[in-house]
């Protein structure tokens, strides 16, 4: 690798590292299935690096990356089986436009979420932690505490809503 390409790679890594969460969030909102979103995210990561020489440094990296991600999502939807539940093209275009405008405030959203998470009861926080660490962990937790797994899923969903409302309030107050 020449030093010019090396430097290009470093520039790319810096930008990609700063925006990768938002690019993934963008893809996930068009394709709210983890396996599918990750497939597209991986392909998109590679594509972004391959096309990085075409990126105009005067433009927003996030907009550029999400533009490419949008077409990757559409390619993915076209190439996968039709029995998969995916949003139709018109809705995807609407969501894409709207999502892009709203991604800039992701940092504030995460800060607010952390604060809301801290405000939960310790037992509730532990449940969220077990749930988001993986299914196996939650199953162990269900066995240890003698609760039905579905009950825990329902409680996690309820806590997610509490956190959702809490974040809303915090962001509105700022």
């Amino acid at each position: 690798m020449t030093s010019a390409i090396e430097s290009e790679y470093e520039a790319f890594l810096g930008l990609f590292a700063a925006h990768r969460d938002r690019v993934f969030a963008f893809i996930f909102s068009l394709l709210p299935n983890h396996a599918d979103a990750e497939d597209v995210f991986q392909r998109c990561s590679l594509l972004l690096w391959r096309k990085f020489s075409e990126y105009d440094r005067e433009r927003s990296f996030l907009s550029w990356a999400c533009g490419i991600a949008f077409y990757e999502v559409r390619n993915f939807v076209r190439s996968t089986q039709r029995d998969r539940m995916q949003f139709d093209t018109a809705l995807m275009a609407q969501l894409s436009d709207h999502r892009l405008k709203q991604l800039d405030r992701k940092r504030e959203h995460l800060d607010a979420l952390k604060s809301c998470l801290d405000s939960l009861q310790p037992r509730e926080r532990e449940l969220v932690q077990q749930a988001y660490l993986g299914e196996a962990t939650l199953k162990d937790f269900a066995q240890t505490t003698g609760q039905a797994l579905q009950t825990l899923y329902n409680r996690v969903a309820r806590l997610r809503r509490i956190l959702f409302e809490c974040v809303r309030r915090k962001l509105a107050a700022e």
Binding site: D21, F24, A25, F28, S29, P32, L95, H98, R99, Q102, K106, H109, L110, L113, L117, V128, Y132, R160, L163, F164, V167, R168
Partner: peptide, 12 residues
């Protein structure tokens, strides 16, 4: 929809 997904992704 976006806000709820962000709570989910943020928790993860």
């Amino acid at each position: 929809y976006f806000d709820y997904l962000d709570v989910h992704l943020g928790l993860k």
